[in-house]
Design a protein around this nucleic acid. Sequence first.
DNA 1: CGCCGTGTTGAAATACATCAACAGGAGTGG
DNA 2: CCACTCCTGTTGATGTATTTCAACACGGCG
Lengths: 244, 244
Amino acid sequence: MAPSDHDCPLSRKLRTHMPLARADLAILADLHARRRTYPAGADMIFEGQAAHPLYILYEGWASSYKLLADGTRQILDFQIPGDSLGLNSMLFQTADHNIEPITDIVASEIIIGDVAGFYASSPTLATALLWAAARDQAMVVEHLINVGRRDAQRRTAHFLLELGARLILVGRGTRQGYDCPLSQYLLADALGLTAEHTNRVLRQLRQDGLVTFRDGRVVFDDLEGLIKLADFDMGYLDHGVLLR
Amino acid sequence: MAPSDHDCPLSRKLRTHMPLARADLAILADLHARRRTYPAGADMIFEGQAAHPLYILYEGWASSYKLLADGTRQILDFQIPGDSLGLNSMLFQTADHNIEPITDIVASEIIIGDVAGFYASSPTLATALLWAAARDQAMVVEHLINVGRRDAQRRTAHFLLELGARLILVGRGTRQGYDCPLSQYLLADALGLTAEHTNRVLRQLRQDGLVTFRDGRVVFDDLEGLIKLADFDMGYLDHGVLLR
DNA sequence: CGCCGTGTTGAAATACATCAACAGGAGTGG
DNA sequence: CCACTCCTGTTGATGTATTTCAACACGGCG
């Protein structure tokens, strides 16, 4: 097993939560072999699709979203390296939302015959996958609270902080900031705002010296202030990486 | 096993999704034995609690919610008979939200040593539980879309329809309507609106002849119209009970 | 060169929140 | 029995956050 396998985003993320035996690491390394690239913009999983596959994302960003009858879009979450694509909806027989790469991505398809069998062969990893699913759930819950009860400024601040915390976990960000391929339109569709208003909110946050979102990069100009503004609490991510 | 055991809300809900063997029904019936009542208003699970129990709700309504620093509350979902309390957060070591009975409720506590063992002893029921968890997730997702991308009218309409569909599944509602113990304040905290605005929206919906929310009862005055207004699609609940 | 995606700004419209007040019923203690 | 409070529902007036509509600037890319 090459050293790089221990540094893959998924293994990194899982190891912050639970120790992994050598056999488990081997299984993770095994997944590396099957990875390939998928182009930005082409849906990999779409709503209503039966028996879709499960992917582990290695490089690049994706988005899970749903379209409404009036053409508007709600982005449920962005997926970053180490995240799974289509895990939740795998338990259903059909996917309940779409998943589309934002950038070109590198991912590997996983075939799990049945969950029970997977539990027998690799209980640790199966538990880890369940943990990941629960974490996804917690993320959507926090997103709901964000959209339901915070105004545009706090909502945006909270979202950028959450992304930062997740990226730090997989070694793609620091307390100074992170690279971020999102357009303001994508951000708006995630926050439940219009692109114009998102633009104004970002300007305000920048002028207040809190955070700069520009040219594919997020810079935390005043991390403490931003955390305070957003009422940001990492408990639901199970790790206070931003605060250490 | 008494006939009533086959009619318990959980068994009813599960059987719409998958067949249950006699052994599984026996396990479900077993849960009946341990049920007891819990009073309205007293939290059964609270945020940050470690190793909390798991309950199956038999009678009455509960709510899962989170409080923000400024004192506002976002209700994530209401639980009705047949739903579980605390399933998602059981996978985490600590609960990530509070659960509080809205009415006096009847529920039974479930002890699951470890998920893997449960899979060995009763794979069908374990899978059913996972399915229930995935369904909860889908519900939160739809709730997010509701709050993020629908105006107050459509949002309220959609929410009342969703509750109706879930209640029909467990025999607590019809296409005419259902009994609903929610106050306008609770409804507002679920919808991300103020109680005053919720009141105005409900009046509008009533005056438009679509739905009447009053005196603990929801009446669908014009189900078709309401479904159309709300852009309501039952796919994510896996059953089109309202439309049959 | 023209076009399209993205970012940016302004003015007007509106959905929703906030603040304030009142009405009725249910409980509670006198 | 009354007086009292609390909870819920209801309505009005006003304020404001956000949307909508419109326009333009810029770079990349055909």
